[in-house]
């Protein structure tokens, strides 16, 4: 959705364009630099990196960190679980929230407000850690893949986002279909879904990344380690030093310190975890840039 040719370019408009490009370039430096830095550290020899001072380029180049990480079977297993979780979690959540969003935006549906409030309350009130855990135990969901996606299919927030988008779709479209005798579910998948692609792509990214990045529930529910995700492996490495907080014996701390994953390994895993998202993102973002032309459908 760039400036259409038919809008006149003014002088101040040109100044803005230049300033805008400069601003964006500056912004890019701030957001990209940290990544370059992590990559540089991940390509550096381990002990040498402790001395700091690595910014854009490794000082003592080494691929040993990536070799070490990629030799680890847990990483492969974790990646498979992460992919499985993200795919199932995203598909179910996108469909679920789109359906819910459609339902609560149907103007003539009497239960609209009831459903909205029913879900809004859940946004603010929750039982907390222990009741949630006991519920999953009671449902037998501990140590399963289901525990990752089932409790997060619907969410009040995504419901609202979907609804706010669906509201912009002309109601007449649905009415016409209803007159033709289409069921509500059919209207949903034949009209609502295809017409909401940009919003669905956006929610898919939010939900998908949420699943890919989450570690909290994995720490709680993957007790046997079977369903450990890639992110949780990284999380543990990054937060390993927290285990020292209860130690008081100095020799014990010394030994624990020795077992802490080197900085460079942590950097390598960070890169490995983020890479898939960077690769996949453009496939979704094309739905934003294409732009939807509602007019075409209206006719």
């Amino acid at each position: 959705m760039s400036r259409p040719f038919y809008i006149k370019q003014t002088k101040s408009g040109k100044v803005f364009d230049v300033a805008n490009v400069i601003l964006m370039l500056m912004f890019m430096v701030i957001v990209v630099y940290p990544f370059i830095n992590i990559i540089a550290i991940s390509l550096n020899e381990g002990t040498d990196a402790v001395r700091g001072g690595i910014y854009l380029w490794p000082r003592k180049f080494s691929l040993a960190n990536y070799k070490y990480v990629l030799n680890n079977d847990d990483i492969y297993k974790g990646t498979m679980v992460s992919i499985l979780r993200t795919v199932i979690g995203t598909v179910t959540a996108v469909l679920g929230n789109a359906l819910l969003g459609y339902i609560v935006s149907c103007r003539q549906f009497a239960g609209r407000k009831f459903m909205r409030i029913l879900f809004l309350i859940t946004m603010y009130f929750g039982g907390g850690l222990i009741p949630g855990y006991l519920l999953m135990t009671a449902l037998g969901l501990v140590d399963t893949l289901t525990v990752y996606w089932l409790p997060s299919i619907f969410s009040a927030y995504y419901m609202l986002l979907c609804a706010s988008y669906v509201q912009n779709i002309p109601e007449a479209l649905f009415e016409a279909a209803r007159v033709d005798g289409a069921s509500e579910f059919r209207i949903f998948y034949q009209f609502v879904l295809p017409l909401s692609k940009p919003m669905l792509a956006c929610i898919a990214i939010y939900v998908g990344v949420g699943h890919w990045n989450s570690w909290f529930d994995v720490n709680l529910y993957s007790k046997s380690g079977t369903w450990d995700t890639l992110q949780v492996i990284l999380y543990r490495m990054l937060n390993q030093a927290n285990a020292l907080k209860d130690m008081t014996d100095s020799t014990m701390i010394a030994e624990a310190m020795r077992g802490i994953q080197p900085l460079t390994i942590r950097a390598a895993i960070t890169i490995i975890v983020v890479l898939p998202i960077i690769v996949i993102y453009p496939f979704f973002s094309k739905y934003f840039t294409q732009g939807m032309t509602l007019g075409a459908v209206k006719q």
Binding site: M1, V32, V273, T289
Partner: peptide, 23 residues
């Protein structure tokens, strides 16, 4: 949205959210 160059726009968009992924 106001950027005119489509390629540049994509690049800005795809890099802007990178920091979000750094724990």
């Amino acid at each position: 949205n106001e950027l005119n160059n489509k390629k540049f726009k994509t690049v800005v968009q795809t890099t802007s959210y990178l920091p979000y992924f750094i724990s």
